[in-house]
Computed example of a mutant assay.
Amino acid sequence: MSQAPITPITLQGTAGKLAGWVVEPPAGSERRGTVLLVPGFTGSKEDFEGILPLLAEAGYRAVTYDQRGQYESDGPEDVTAYAMADFVGDLLGVVDQISPDAPIHLVGHSFGGYVSRVAVVERPQRFRTLTLLASGPSTTENLNFPPPALLVQLIETGGQQALWDQMSAMMAASGQPPTPQRLEFMGNRILRTRKANLIGIMTAMQQLPLRDPSPLRNAGVPLLVAYGDTGDIWTPDVHEAFAKQIHAKTAVYHGSGHVPNEDVPEQVFADLVTFWKEQA
């Protein structure tokens, strides 16, 4: 059976057009709702390419988009236009565009999870569930990653190329580097991403959005914390402690790192659907 096709769409953000993808369930199939997947730092809609068709085959309308200033989306050149409130405003606007009358399932990867959790706290009635995928607590001291303040200095001095040089060196040393084709795409994507986006995200992370987990825990939206246990930028014990704080279910991808959505999309898909059906 051929997979449902991915269709490019244009969504409207508060600072311009947002490049998106949508995959629709097969004609005549049961419709189970809408899913929105939000990428993280240096990411894009392509991070979910392996999951979208699976979700559609299971009856879900699946949508993703490049956040403001990422890859193919519009974005200002002013760093101050990349505050957390700006990313959240875009997300909530996208939700209203893709599902104006019904709440949706939300999946946020890494920094996309930071944006997603704030959106859920602000408008919990618009969401059926929230999944935080490789997206740890709102702190900076437990990151297995260069401190955001140092990355800001690096990007301000050397731009997107300097960031890519550091990231590609880290991936080469990880023992599990992406394929040459994937590396080429990732490098091109960073170079096309606004410098202000990269600095803005790192600045927003330093402001520790929702460091107190109680508003998320009390929002009334079912939560799932899903993560790889090998080489993520948060260690498994950090993810587990965070899940307990917010009363979330967990899903673990053994042998996967920071991008289980790319490493093991079938497993991530299966856990998402199981979680959603449990909440029905």
Rank of each mutant, 00 (worst) to 15 (best):
V118Q: 12
I9H: 08
F127M: 08
H105I: 08
V115R: 10
R126P: 07
A27K: 14
A58Q: 08
Q67E: 13
V95H: 03
G112W: 09
T129V: 08
S73M: 04
D78H: 04
E72R: 15
G20C: 05
T80Q: 07
A83D: 11
Y60Q: 01
Y71A: 01
E57S: 08
P76F: 06
R117A: 02
A56Q: 07
F127T: 07
I9A: 03
I6W: 10
A58L: 03
G75D: 06
G69K: 11
P5W: 13
S73N: 04
R31I: 00
R126W: 13
S73F: 12
Y71T: 00
P26D: 03
I98M: 02
T129F: 03
A19Y: 14
T14D: 08
D86M: 11
S116I: 09
T34L: 08
V118C: 07
V22E: 14
K45A: 14
D90C: 09
V23T: 14
T42D: 03
V79R: 05
P103Y: 11
Q12P: 00
G112D: 06
G108M: 06
V38I: 14
V118A: 10
D96M: 07
G112R: 13
D90H: 13
P53H: 07
D101C: 01
A19T: 04
L52P: 04
E49K: 12
L130F: 07
A81H: 11
K17Y: 06
A102R: 15
Y82K: 04
V107C: 02
L130V: 06
T10A: 14
L11P: 00
Y60K: 06
D66R: 03
A81W: 04
A81S: 14
K45S: 12
G40S: 05
K17M: 10
D101N: 15
G33L: 08
A62L: 04
E122M: 14
G89C: 08
S44T: 06
A85K: 14
Y65F: 15
E122R: 15
G20Q: 06
D90Q: 11
W21N: 06
G59I: 05
E72A: 11
P5K: 14
P39L: 06
A119N: 11
